[in-house]
């Protein structure tokens, strides 16, 4: 049961930041999964009036406001082109259209869910997180921040870099949260994988030279094996660690091979 004593639409990031410093206050994202929590919130801080629901394009980046809905994120033409459809692929299994209309990119990142498709795809896109106070951080730096550091997530910055990317996930049912998420990215001669929902948060795994000779059935398999060996897997109600390890090897291999297909 979630209770909220006060609701405030912040007039500025400064106001939101100041309010957010109290432990029982909370910044609202899309409110998805918020109901799952049993907590008494003092003040719910809404960023909806701060113009953070826009996706802006600059010379070098896409700047995705924290309040941009997952649905708007998946439907954005420029981002779709940039990610070769991988963003839409990564989000299509998140419950349903209505959920994704409410859920926000900022909320999904800030919550640091272990099961996040959003985190995985953003890491694959080498996105940066812009916090009001702490400034611009990489996704890994953000993930490592202590939760006690109560900053405001302003936007996500996705660099416009030429890359090939393939996103795959394993789910017990089509719209359940993932058992495993995986993206493989090829950029400027480098290839790396992002694997998440282990059920720990996503992490990046470079190919470490395994793919130096190019992507073949054998090297892709080796890459999958390498990631599966390096990543730390755990168990929860959706599957055990051993299963996740096996599937990680498969998804990484398949995604790598798919990249090769894409690149022709």
């Amino acid at each position: 049961m979630l209770t909220i004593r006060e609701y405030v639409r912040a007039k500025s990031l400064e106001e939101a930041y100041a309010l957010a410093q109290k432990r029982n206050n909370v910044v609202l994202g899309g409110m998805g999964w918020l109901n799952l929590q049993k907590r008494n919130v003092g003040t719910a801080i809404d960023l909806c009036d701060l113009g953070l629901d826009a996706i802006e394009e600059t010379e070098t980046d896409y700047r995705v406001g924290a309040m941009v809905s997952l649905r708007a994120f998946e439907q954005h033409q420029g981002l779709q082109t940039l990610s070769q459809g991988a963003i839409a692929e990564s989000l299509k299994g998140i419950v349903g259209v209505q959920f994704r209309n409410s859920a926000t990119v900022g909320g999904s990142v800030y919550a640091r869910f272990g099961f996040s498709d959003v985190t995985t795809i953003l890491m694959a896109l080498e996105a940066k997180v812009e916090l009001y106070k702490a400034g611009v951080l990489t996704m890994e730096e953000f993930a490592a921040l202590p939760r006690t550091q109560r900053d405001i997530l302003v936007r996500i910055i996705i660099p416009k870099v030429r890359r090939s990317i393939c996103y795959l996930s394993q789910r017990n049912t089509k719209t359940d949260i993932p058992v495993l998420t995986c993206a493989v990215v090829h950029r400027e001669g480098e290839t790396f994988a992002v694997v998440g929902a282990c059920p720990r948060p996503a992490a990046i795994y470079p190919d470490g030279g395994v793919l130096a000779e190019g992507i073949t059935e054998e090297t892709a398999r080796a890459f999958g094996g390498k990631v599966a060996a390096e990543a730390v897997f755990g168990s929860n109600s959706r599957s055990g660690a051993d299963y996740r390890r096996k599937v990680a090897a498969v998804l990484v291999r398949r995604a790598a091979l798919a990249l090769k297909e894409q690149e022709g």
């Binding site: 349903g96 017990n172 049912t173 719209t175 359940d176 109600s237």
Partner: peptide
């Protein structure tokens, strides 16, 4: 997909639609 499991105290894990997965149209 519809599973029902209990923890060591007899509590049901699949206690809502987030955990108990009935088929969607997909």
């Amino acid at each position: 997909s519809e599973n029902v499991t209990y923890d060591e105290k007899g509590r049901i894990t699949e206690n809502n639609f987030f955990q108990y997965k009935i088929p969607t149209r997909l």
